[in-house]
Design a protein around this nucleic acid. Sequence first.
DNA 1: CAATAATTTTACCGATTGGTAAAGATTGCA
DNA 2: TGCAATCTTTACCAATCGGTAAAATTATTG
Lengths: 214, 214
Amino acid sequence: MKARAAQTQRRTRIQETNEEKILEAALEIFSARGFHGATLDEVADAAGMSKPNLLYYFRTKEAIHRRLIERVLDTWLDPLRAFDAAGDPMAEIRSYIRRKIEMARDFPRESRLFASEVLQGAPRILDELKGPLKELVDAKAEVIRQWQRRGKLVKCDPYHLIFSIWATTQHYADFDAQIQAVLGEKNSGEGRFEDAARFLDQLFSSGLKAADPQ
Amino acid sequence: MKARAAQTQRRTRIQETNEEKILEAALEIFSARGFHGATLDEVADAAGMSKPNLLYYFRTKEAIHRRLIERVLDTWLDPLRAFDAAGDPMAEIRSYIRRKIEMARDFPRESRLFASEVLQGAPRILDELKGPLKELVDAKAEVIRQWQRRGKLVKCDPYHLIFSIWATTQHYADFDAQIQAVLGEKNSGEGRFEDAARFLDQLFSSGLKAADPQ
DNA sequence: CAATAATTTTACCGATTGGTAAAGATTGCA
DNA sequence: TGCAATCTTTACCAATCGGTAAAATTATTG
């Protein structure tokens, strides 16, 4: 017994709160500096503890990162899971876009952490992408195809439709520095997310409702 | 005289070819591992020279990165510069999208290098973004507004229109690992770029042609 | 062909970083 | 209360990394 921390089930309240503090700090640092750019000293400092103490809860830097990105990937896919075949296609899609924009606004660090990982070839989560993610997307693409077969949605590649929604929404978190630079200081509030939501709603609404021009 | 390498005008052919070899190698490594994740030993190795020899041509790691990203940012904006107020709005926009998709296909490393920098807050190029980039986008947004005022294009926020084009096209370079994981091995050729081009053309064509539903 | 300038190699170095050993402090519980 | 388990701190280390000094080599030029 006396198993090392984080191996057996969560035992003490100290463990739970300290692991949470570490993950919160690590999210802050990793998302801002990237995995390699972040140092454990920084993370430990942000978590309000010493580095050896941090390493008491997570044995390696990678272990922190792994736990962090697992959690992010999971919550990140919730909106897509909500995609309902029984619902109205345009309502489902518009609702999905709105949710994703809200997540970009409310959880930009999570988005950037994920983007940073994928950008470098997703070395630590490739299996997750090829497995659970692919299965979920395959299923939802089939839902979209059904809608299209029944004439309830304009025909188009369902995979690239999903990709375009991911791209346009996450862009506002991942490329925030560029967007704020271009829009200038006057737009420094959260207005850009409102404007983005309005624009994307318009683009996808009319873009997917209209008859296929091909 | 005897100025250090790369200070005065390009003198010898050796300098020119070696700097080119270094930049090519650095693009490969930096885009794959990020600035912090890349090491000078790796870059020097990929360039086929020793580290001190590499540092004879670029005094610091940052100097390499700076030169690299300056060049990328410049060529990256060429398609946007080609935006012509005199041309047909939809033709201009569709042509812009096609070019950007081609760049994502042909220059993914450049796209990723840029994305990696912006993702971390663009610490090394914020001035470039707030200056030249913003001015260019401002000018092109005004072109779009003119088209809209003359009834040649559906009304929408021109800035977010540009953002959505950047997002959807660069996504195919930056998130390639995810896209290939989702599409599976059968789609491992370059077909996904063709499919993406077709989808985006359809989305933006009908999405911008249709009457404003608001 | 000297001689001078440009390039490359060899041998290092100080700082940082992820991680460890082990003693000390605290907590939980019988 | 006392003891065992958990948690924290102090002191440290080996490896890596960006960068330098200076000698050795190659190219250029008068």
